[in-house]
Design a binder for these strands. Structure first.
Length: 277
DNA sequence: ATTAATCCCTGGAGGC
DNA sequence: TGCCTCCAGGGATTAA
């Protein structure tokens, strides 16, 4: 499940492979992947467009074309595969194919079909609703402790779902939110407003640190897929809570337990992460 | 306004 | 072996 570190890893891989490539044609095999504009417009607008850059905002990839921005969200299982010279074969999960003028291709594969793409005029990706509503990137130069604490103070919502909705800070998904809460020693169901200053400070630092370390490791690989960009990450060996059910907490050796919080599987240490509020 | 539930999707795992 | 149910979950949408 790509979260910020995995999307960043995909971005770097894609940039290296497709920068400078020009689109000859686009095939769409599962129309719902294209959120807007209409499929025919999406395809027609991309012809003769050159990829100048591949950027990222939160978990969204942004392909910078000559005259358009293409926003792509991988959701759960979306991935890009690059085929340098017409060697690879499509499978039933290949939903969009970008054919380049040099006869290389980029496949968008997505088992669950949750991923979405949007094409907007050049430099207007920041106006796209899904991106416009995002909170800051999890870096200290744009994500401020005081603002974070003020917002937490004003919400009665449980801390985990609050961190998942991308408005306070963007980039956390189910894996890294469990990791950040473990690191900060906070119970995932704690009402945000019940956290004291010491806890919110630890949480702020944990969010920044966990995501930075995961980016450094190239993300987390839960399942491996051959030839899939961004699937070579090694952060899975550093997980302390996520997916560690019944294994000893690395800090206190109490078995990690798993519960449901806001419909999400949630892993935490019942000793280190005491419930409060 | 905020917060919770529902939906989109498929494959893999486990029960019987 | 085969059929069934459950589970994985990001974010848009709908409901309360």
């Amino acid at each position: 499940m790509p979260e910020l570190p995995e999307v960043e890893t995909v971005r770097k891989g894609l940039l290296h492979l497709v920068k400078g490539k020009t689109i000859e044609s686009v095939e769409v095999r599962w129309p719902r992947i294209i959120e807007s504009p209409e499929i025919e417009t999406f395809q027609r607008n991309l012809v003769n467009q050159t990829i100048e850059d591949v950027q990222r905002r939160g978990k969204f990839l942004i392909f910078k074309f000559t005259n358009f921005d293409m926003i792509s969200h991988l959701r759960m299982e979306g991935k890009y595969d690059f085929d340098p010279n017409m060697q690879d074969t499509l499978d039933k999960h290949t939903h969009v194919i970008f054919n380049f003028t040099d006869h290389s291709r980029l496949f968008y594969n997505d088992v669950r079909k949750f991923g979405r793409m949007v094409l907007v005029p050049k430099d207007e990706s920041s106006q796209y609703k899904g991106i416009k509503q995002l909170g800051p990137e999890p870096q200290p130069d744009v994500f401020y402790l005081e603002t974070f604490q003020e917002k937490l103070k004003r919400s009665a919502k449980a801390i985990k779902p609050l961190l998942l909705d991308q408005k306070l800070v963007t980039g956390l998904g189910n894996i890294y939110v469990d990791e950040a809460l473990w690191e900060a020693q906070i119970h995932p169901e704690t009402p945000a407003s019940a956290l004291n200053e010491s806890e919110t400070t630890r949480l702020y630092q944990a969010i920044i640190d966990v995501l930075a370390r995961a980016v450094e490791a190239g993300g987390t690989t839960i399942r491996s897929y051959a030839n899939a960009l961004g699937e070579a990450g090694t952060f899975q060996v550093s997980l302390n809570a996520y997916g560690q059910t019944d294994l000893p907490c690395p800090r206190c050796h109490t078995p990690i337990i798993k519960i449901k919080v806001a419909q999400r599987g949630t892993h935490y240490c019942p000793t280190c992460q005491k419930r409060k509020g």
